[in-house]
Design a protein around this nucleic acid. Sequence first.
DNA 1: CGGATTTTTGATCGCTATCAAGCCACGTGG
DNA 2: CCACGTGGCTTGATAGCGATCAAAAATCCG
Lengths: 247, 247
Amino acid sequence: MPQRAVVPITAEGLKTACSQCNLQELCLPFGMSDGDIDQLDGLVGARRKVKRHQHLYRVGDTFEAIFAVRTGSFKTDVLLEDGREQVTGFQMSGEIIGLDGISTDAHTCNAVALEDSDVCIIPFANLETLSREVESLQHQFHKVMSREIVRDHGVMMLLGSMRAEERLAAFLINMSQRFTARGFSAAEFHLRMTREEIGSYLGLKLETVSRAFSRFQENGLIKVQQKHIRIVNIGGLKALLSHLPSV
Amino acid sequence: MPQRAVVPITAEGLKTACSQCNLQELCLPFGMSDGDIDQLDGLVGARRKVKRHQHLYRVGDTFEAIFAVRTGSFKTDVLLEDGREQVTGFQMSGEIIGLDGISTDAHTCNAVALEDSDVCIIPFANLETLSREVESLQHQFHKVMSREIVRDHGVMMLLGSMRAEERLAAFLINMSQRFTARGFSAAEFHLRMTREEIGSYLGLKLETVSRAFSRFQENGLIKVQQKHIRIVNIGGLKALLSHLPSV
DNA sequence: CGGATTTTTGATCGCTATCAAGCCACGTGG
DNA sequence: CCACGTGGCTTGATAGCGATCAAAAATCCG
């Protein structure tokens, strides 16, 4: 995920301007008027760089802010006592991380950078204050939270009712759509997560993920070269989901 | 789930008063001051009765309000094109239903009453208006949404990383805790959902759920009589989750 | 009471996990 | 620049958990 920053980034802690950011339509300001967005400029505190494999926050950390991914990408996960990991999501530029912390004033999952990344820090107290004044911000924030709930329901569907190849097909289609929304190719992209992380997210073992990739390639649906994916037959992938005969 | 209503219910559409409701500490007003709660009385529009197996709303219905369960209980589910159902949650008194609708102004799941039930209708536009004025309401509402996200992460953990008996043990412990919070017995309760619905929620087939119940009974953890459950050894159930030797 | 629904239990199947080995890519240091 | 080491990926063989198929028993409800 190459960065598409327009605002100059000179140092950690630099002020960010939502009004100047080209991720607007993917981020919190989506759907807000230019005038309202200008008011966000005072809200977003600073940036923070997070290096690959570093934590943005951990389970138990005090909740103070939510984060908007500017560049790079993250995973969020929860751990079971015996060490089993469940990846709960992958976040790309424009997406909001940290909403889990509001409920108890402490984070309930870990957020880890999958590559060198950059986030905007949105102090939550300020966000609540400003959304009492700016109706459109209030509404957008509610939509962001609701969208996360709807996404979670989709993951439950995937984990609870789909078979291995359906899950992976759904994952690839979802990634493709999100890359497209960010101006990248829908058909060719580079996954930042390992087979094991994909497997954890999809409720599968890494070997099963690998075998499903290989099967898709045998069937002419995709080309796989390690983390580089090229979708050859998107219709065929979608057909896997709907139980339709492959195109 | 017997009802514990204090406010008299005379007819569908009657005005409800949060300030007089004994579900306060389980519902949206949780943590708000008495003064602030008084302001909610004007917010909650009316009640609605929903008979067993009737829909409170369906996928695609226009989103206008969220609902607080007063009496009874619900399930929410999403359907796949080929008919597969995924139950995404079971809701008891005091819990909020309908947050999924905010994101697109249309509901993305179905909500069905598991028994004759009763909900408070909270028009969403009014909720947003009032929470711009009442800070504690704004914050409580954000907590309710965040709690839902955290709960969803727990379900992902369950579906993605746990084995059949662990899932069912987690389910029983969760139900026990929620009954306790409502003043009912922690050890003895009546499930309102079928084995098939439990299975759908847990990503298992109904036969597997039934077998796991039987196994728990053989091992002296619970007593099962159809939908009536008595927990005999809560420590043993919890041990199943932590992979500890059974107590 | 009687039919329908739900639940239980048994027998068998199949998908995914597990165990194991080898391969590949990439980064590091000589 | 290449040798080497390591982490990640692929592939094969086998095992096991939960699904599926099947039938009977219990319960609910009109």
